[in-house]
Write a protein that binds this DNA or RNA. Structure first.
Lengths: 340, 340
DNA sequence: TTGTAGGCGTTATCAA
DNA sequence: TTGATAACGCCTACAA
C-alpha cells in the first residue's frame, strides 16, 4: 500500500526519468518537455494520486511558499480584518499563511518570529502597535533583522521603530481632527480612555486628541486601562464613581464598546447623557446602538498593503507606507445636551 | 557573510560531528550526549545564531509540525472563535497553524486541503457546515481520505458526512428548545430566516425550529437567503414588504444582526414591535441592543475539541464528538406585545 | 529534449 | 557516548 507516492514512483510509472517527471509536473521556466511525454507523466501522477512534497521542494529550491503572520489576537475584529487582507493578498501569490497569535505577549511575539524563521517562511508580517519598552523593541528588531539577513523580508504594521519595512497608521492626524469635530459639536469636557500608558498607538491617539481638545479650550481628563473591551468597561466605571462625563473618547472601538456597556449599566444613555467616540471602525460596529462616532481605518487594505510591501523589490533602507483614516461622525456624538 | 548557518557550521565550531550536534540540539529521546559537549554545542549554536531548518527536519523526520485549518471566513466571529480555540490547543502541542479561508467556495475548500496535504500538515481541521451537494461531499470525502491514507488525521467541524472524525454540533435539540421557549413566551407566528436551502446547518436549525413551533400550534413562515449578515438583512426586508412579523428567528447570529438592522430601518422596534432570535452566541453580541436571544455555543471549546480529536490515538472508524448548546433567552424576545 | 548525479539540512542507523 | 554515512523527496546544472 504505497500511501506515500513520490515523484520517483510517477517517473517509473510513466517510464521516464525523475528529472523529466519533475520538469513535466511544474513546467519550470521554459517548458522543455515533449507534449506527449508531459501528458504521460501527468496521467501517471493523477493515476497514482501523486501529491508533491512541499517540504522537499522547499529544501531543493531553498525557499518555501509560506507567509508568516503574527497578530495579537485573532478574535479581535481589528486584527482579523487586517489578517483577511493579508490572506487575500497571499492567496493571489499562491502562498499559504501561517498564523500565530501572541495575546499581546512580547516574549511570545519574539519566539513566534523565531519559529517562523525556523519554518523558513518567505516573509513575516507582524501586526500591532509597539510598547514603549526598549528591551522589547530591541529584541524584536534583533529577530526581525536576523530573519532578514537570512534573505527574507519583514513587514511591521505599526510604529516604524524596528528597522523594517512598515505600514504605519497615522493616528495623530485623525485623532486631532476628531477632537476638533467633537469640540465643534459643542463638547467642552472629555474623558479620554487612553489605554495602557506605554502603548504607543494608544498614546498617539490619546495624546493628539487631548492636545487638540485642550488647545480649543476644552478640558480633558485621562483614564488609563487595558486596550481591550474590559479595559474600556473598567475605566469608564471608575470614572463614573467620580463624576458623569459629557463626552468619552476611547482610543479604540472595542474599548468604546466596553465603555458603552459600562455607561448603560450605570443608567446613562448614549448619546443623550454622554457622548461616545472610538477609533478603528471595526466590523460589527454598524450593529451597535447608537452608531458610534469613530475614525475609519481601511483595515483590510492595510493587510493587502503590508503583503505587497513584503513582496516588493527589496530596498536598501526600511520603507514606510503611511495610511490614514477618516473621521466618521455618527449618532453617538450629536453634541452635548443643551442646558436642561 | 554566512547568512545561512547550518548544523554543520555549528558542529565544526563546536568541534564535534554533525551527528553529535544534532543530538545535542534536540536531546532526542534519551539524551545520550555528554553534558559538557552538549553545552559546547549549544554555545556554538547561539554564538552563530543557528536556527534549525524546519523544512529539513520535516524531510528527515518525515513529519512536519504544522496543523492545517480551513474555515469559511476568518472575519466571521463564529469562525474566528473556533480558530482561536484551535490555535490555543495547537500551541500547547508545539504546533504551528496554517490557516486558509475558503469564502464558502467548495472547490476552493478541496484545493486547500490538497495544498495542506502538499505542505505535509500533520493534520487538517475543516470547519463549517456542509451543503446538500453530493458532488461536493464526495470530493471532500475523497481528498480527506487520501490525506488520511498518507498517514495523517483529519477532523471536520460540522455534519458527520465525510467519513472522518467529526465534532458535530447539535442543532436540532437547541433549536427545538428555543421554539418551545419562545412559544412559551406567547409568540404564535414566526418567520424563520432559514439561510440557503441546501445548507445543512441552516436546514437543521430551521427545520427543527419550525417543526417544534408548528407542533405547538404556531404558524411558521420561511424565508431563504444567504447565511450572512446581508442575507439576513435582505430576507427581512423582503418579508416586510408583505407583512410585519411577530417574531423573527434567524438561523445564525450574523443573519439576526442583519435582520435587526433591516427591522430598525423599517421603523420597527425590537423587541417592542417584533421579537428576534439568533443562534451561535457570537462574541460581540453583548454589545448590540437589545440583547439578542440566541443559542449559546461553546465555540472556543469546539476548536479545542477538534484539535484534541485530531491528535487522539487513531481509531479504526470515524469518531463523532457531539457538542450541544443552550438556549439563552434575552431581551429581544420578551413575548409579543399584548393587544394594543 | 532527456537522463545522470550531486546537493539542500537533518535525522537515524550502525559501527567504532 | 560519538562519528561516518545513508536516507528523506525534489530540483538543477551538466552531460548525453
Amino acid at each position: 500500500m504505497p500511501s506515500r507516492v513520490t515523484l520517483n514512483d510517477v517517473a517509473r510509472e510513466a517510464g521516464v526519468s525523475l528529472a523529466t517527471a519533475s520538469r513535466a509536473i511544474n513546467g519550470n521556466k521554459n517548458r522543455k518537455v515533449r507534449e506527449d511525454i508531459r501528458e504521460r507523466v501527468l496521467a501517471a501522477a493523477t493515476r497514482l494520486h501523486y501529491t508533491p512534497d512541499a517540504t522537499a521542494q522547499a529544501m531543493a529550491r531553498g525557499a518555501t511558499t509560506t507567509l508568516g503572520l503574527v497578530v495579537h489576537s485573532i478574535t479581535d475584529p481589528y486584527f482579523s480584518a487586517i489578517a483577511s487582507g493579508v490572506m487575500v493578498a497571499a492567496e493571489r501569490r499562491g502562498l499559504v499563511v501561517t498564523l500565530a497569535s501572541t495575546q499581546s505577549n512580547a516574549n511570545r511575539e519574539v519566539e513566534l518570529v523565531e519559529l517562523l524563521h525556523s519554518q523558513r517562511a518567505r516573509s513575516v508580517i507582524v501586526v500591532g502597535g509597539r510598547r514603549d519598552d526598549d528591551v522589547a523593541l530591541a529584541a524584536m528588531t534583533d529577530v526581525l533583522g536576523r530573519f532578514r539577513r537570512a534573505g527574507n523580508s519583514t513587514v511591521l504594521v505599526g510604529q516604524p521603530l524596528l528597522g523594517t519595512d512598515t505600514v504605519t497608521i497615522d493616528n495623530t492626524g485623525p485623532a486631532t481632527q476628531l477632537a476638533r469635530d467633537l469640540h465643534g459639536r459643542g463638547y467642552q469636557d472629555v474623558v479620554v480612555l487612553a489605554g495602557p500608558a506605554d502603548h504607543l498607538t494608544a498614546r498617539e491617539r490619546a495624546g493628539a486628541f487631548a492636545d487638540a481638545f485642550r488647545e480649543l479650550g476644552g478640558t480633558v481628563d485621562v483614564a488609563h486601562s487595558r486596550f481591550t473591551r474590559d479595559g474600556g468597561h473598567h475605566a469608564v466605571r471608575t470614572v463614573l464613581r467620580r463624576y458623569r462625563p459629557e463626552l468619552v473618547f476611547a482610543v479604540n472601538d472595542v474599548m468604546a464598546l466596553g465603555a458603552l456597556a459600562g455607561l448603560t449599566e450605570a443608567g446613562l444613555s448614549v448619546p443623550h447623557d454622554v457622548g461616545l467616540a472610538g477609533f478603528d471602525d471595526i466590523d460589527g460596529l454598524q450593529d451597535v446602538t447608537p452608531h458610534l462616532t469613530t475614525v475609519h481605518l481601511p483595515l483590510h487594505d492595510i493587510g493587502i498593503a503590508a503583503t505587497d510591501l513584503a513582496f516588493a523589490a527589496p530596498a536598501p533602507d526600511p520603507r514606510v507606507v503611511r495610511v490614514s483614516g477618516t473621521v466618521a461622525l455618527r449618532a453617538s456624538t450629536p453634541g452635548p445636551r443643551r442646558a436642561v
